[in-house]
Amino acid sequence: MRLWTIHPEFLDTKGLIALWRESLLAQAVIRGQTKGYKHHPQLIRFYEHHSPRYAINGFLAQVHAESLRRGYNFDKSKIGPTLASLAPIVATTGQLEYEWGHLLHKLKSRSPDEYSRIRNFRARANPLFLITAGPIADWEKP
């Protein structure tokens, strides 16, 4: 499971579809609808948010917005209620940079055209995240 800090606009088609599926799984875990994945490290920052359910729904809404921009048909009814003024999830520059390198490495072999398109870009975060100075997240497994 990878719930990217990076804005979903940088993901290739395979990555965006995987993010949608994994985010829906994360939503089910946070809602208590699964037995597995309860302690998955990617969920820590959502659990630490004062409204974990709204946070994962807000994350899904951002992924859905990117799917619409690309002309895909992700099922919006799967997203739970969202808040217009949801407090951001804090993430660090180290985490964003780590994920950027991880994504570029994946794209280089999986989607060379997408890699060529974004390799010189600067990483930008999903709007749900507030990026602050700091190292890679403690829960990350580099």
Rank of each mutant, 00 (worst) to 15 (best):
H7I: 07
E9T: 09
E9S: 14
L11W: 04
L11V: 05
D12C: 12
D12H: 10
T13H: 14
K14S: 14
I17T: 12
W20K: 09
E22S: 07
E22V: 02
S23Q: 08
L24D: 01
L24S: 04
A28P: 00
A28V: 00
V29K: 00
I30Q: 00
R31H: 13
G32I: 02
T34G: 01
T34L: 13
K35H: 05
Y37M: 03
H40F: 02
Q42S: 10
L43E: 06
R45F: 06
H49V: 11
A55V: 09
N57F: 10
G58A: 10
H64V: 05
L68E: 13
R69M: 06
R69L: 11
G71N: 07
N73E: 12
K76C: 05
I79W: 09
G80W: 05
L83Y: 08
A84Y: 03
L86H: 05
P88I: 08
P88N: 05
V90F: 04
T93C: 07
E97A: 13
Y98W: 15
L104R: 06
H105I: 07
H105M: 12
K106I: 09
K106G: 02
K106V: 06
R110E: 13
S111V: 03
P112M: 12
D113K: 14
D113Q: 14
Y115L: 07
R119G: 01
R122I: 11
A125F: 00
N126Y: 04
L128M: 13
L128H: 07
I131H: 01
D138Y: 02
W139N: 01
W139G: 00
P142W: 00
